[in-house]
Design a binder for these strands. Structure first.
Lengths: 333, 333
DNA sequence: CTGAAAGCGCTTACAG
DNA sequence: CTGAAAGCGCTTACAG
């Protein structure tokens, strides 16, 4: 029904091997042949069948992105971070012929088994994965013979053949906290959900280091699963404990806190200093606009995609990349 | 290298045809055979190769989702709507063995040609597409022999074999505007970007119908590409023209307007009534929380996915579905 | 530089 | 109920 390599060969008066060679550019052929094949292909509207190609080359040109969201199934809706990462990945993949991304969302831990099977069934060429995973899953990934690029995974750099893309989380948190100190705030809280995650601990570390350097006392508020809701809930306690500033480990939490503070009549930006982390788009779509640490999430997605592609092509790559962060001063500090 | 159907056949002591039959459940076989095959498959860790299956069945089990974003490449970042739709689609697909979704973002109109080729190359089984498209692209889709489900596409229901999923946009806008009237607001603006789109026109229609019913005059503010920024920019003009309420054709625009109004000292929720459309998550993550029209975007994604799957399975489906909307009263009205 | 042949892992008539 | 054979559309040694 559809046009195959045989049809093109017939039309061009060559063998199908030659047609294949012209498209792949692998073997040598005369200019004349090349032109004839290309003309025939164009005339017939030939398009390669990737499934057939995949079968023989054992390369699917499919990249899998693993997106954990253990709390609920609204993976993309609830993670602005994921959205930006994906946009960054597509920005790279769009320029790369024949590569496609497939998302695999992990709404429950059991889904990791499914993810593993899925990688085999679709014969995924490489994996991009965000966040932390249990050792057994990483061991499983490691046993598959495909490149793995981990984003924001601090816990498992023992797999030296995995690539790691991280941000300089500790420095970011340090910078943020130091900025609050410079602004004259004295009682600076750390607000965070999921303190147990290695990434959040890095950020906590930066906060502590900055406070230690001036001898201020730490005040840590932590708990809750959903960042925005956590932020909302921390406000009362912060006010009660006379905090005059907060460094939040993620923007959505800062935004929740901002709104609860506003509802309590607190003048955020003057009498209360608030700073987030991530610089998701939303952070400048609140009022007042949120001061935050920009981790350039888009570039992170791009870097991850580029790294995976490079490995796939057998190019030299830096397997362990730490991306810089930057303070973005807006109106809450 | 990997375990094939032949290995399983050998292990189970049957032919590969039988193995295939057991997995597909197509032909009849003895219970004994079934157990033997399944045991062998499990023992060897057999997983079907979807590319091979695809080649022979001419079914890829791949669903393509076309996501236009003509303004920039940050498709997901800038469209909360898309995110929720995708989550809805995955909620259905997760339960459907072997089906996968592939996103195709359209950052420029020229990309439509690429999308068309991509559908052929990956042998996509069915298409989900959001929004409006030029007739030539739809004609092209129509020429491919696969089911198409259009979401929020008002302009082209002339392709009767395409499925259409819409929301009751006009009623939603009518309800919203009427609610503002009931609340006692007299000078009710319509704020919208991209008024030329058929969907936005439907919403404009509902607004006009509500105003007409009480004899109020229309005041339309329109322009700008990015919803949030447009909202920001409308505030000055609204204030100058003594508006005391606004129905915004989408939440992000309402949120931009909200923040600009707040910055101007306008008391939104009492002296100014503001209502959005969509009920994206963000609309209840602002302060004050936004009154809006819930169009249940998640269910829309689910409905689209279900509809496509049903067509693919040859089941009876309602090709033209209009989903109900609902007023969600929060604190800006 | 070009072509005939084999084969990737599967399914699907078809014959028994 | 089961098996031998053909073939999906491609690429890759290999021989010429």
């Amino acid at each position: 029904m559809s046009v195959t390599v045989i049809d093109v060969a017939k039309e061009a008066g060559v063998s199908r091997t030659t047609v294949s060679n012209v498209f792949s550019g692998r073997a040598k052929f005369s200019e004349e042949t090349r032109v004839a094949v290309l003309a025939a292909a164009k005339k017939l509207g030939y398009k390669p069948n990737l499934a057939a190609r995949s079968l023989i080359t054992n390369k699917s040109r499919l990249i899998g992105l693993i997106l954990p969201s253990y709390l609920d199934t609204n993976t993309l809706t609830n993670s602005p971070f994921y959205n930006i990462i994906i946009d960054g990945i597509y920005a790279i993949l769009r320029e790369e012929p024949f590569y496609d991304l497939m998302l695999f969302t992990i709404p429950r831990r059991e889904s990791l088994t499914k993810a593993s099977e899925w990688i085999d069934i679709r014969n995924v060429d490489g994996i991009l994965a965000i966040g932390e995973y249990e050792p057994s899953f990483l061991a499983d990934l490691n046993s598959k013979d495909i490149p793995i690029v981990l984003i924001d995974n601090y816990a498992h750099n023992r797999y030296q053949n995995f690539a790691h893309i991280l941000s300089d989380d500790e420095t970011g948190a340090f910078t943020a906290t130091q900025f609050l100190i410079e602004r004259g705030y004295k009682h600076i809280a750390l607000c965070s959900s999921a303190m147990y995650s290695p990434l959040m601990q890095k950020r906590a570390l930066g906060y502590k280091r900055a406070l230690d350097s001036v001898g201020y006392t730490e005040q840590i508020f932590s708990g809750g699963d959903m960042a925005y809701e956590s932020g909302l809930q921390f406000a009362d306690e912060l006010i009660k404990q006379n905090m005059d500033a907060a460094f939040c480990s993620e923007d959505m939490l800062a935004i929740g806190l901002l709104h609860a503070l506003l509802a309590n009549g607190v003048k955020v930006g003057s009498e209360f200093g608030l700073i987030g982390f991530d610089n998701i788009n939303f952070s400048k779509q609140v009022y007042p606009e949120l001061t935050t640490i920009d981790q350039n999430i888009f570039a992170k997605g791009q870097t991850a995609a580029k790294t995976l592609l490079s490995i796939l092509k057998g190019e030299e790559v830096n397997l362990h990349q730490v991306l810089p962060v930057e303070l973005v001063i807006r109106n809450t500090t």
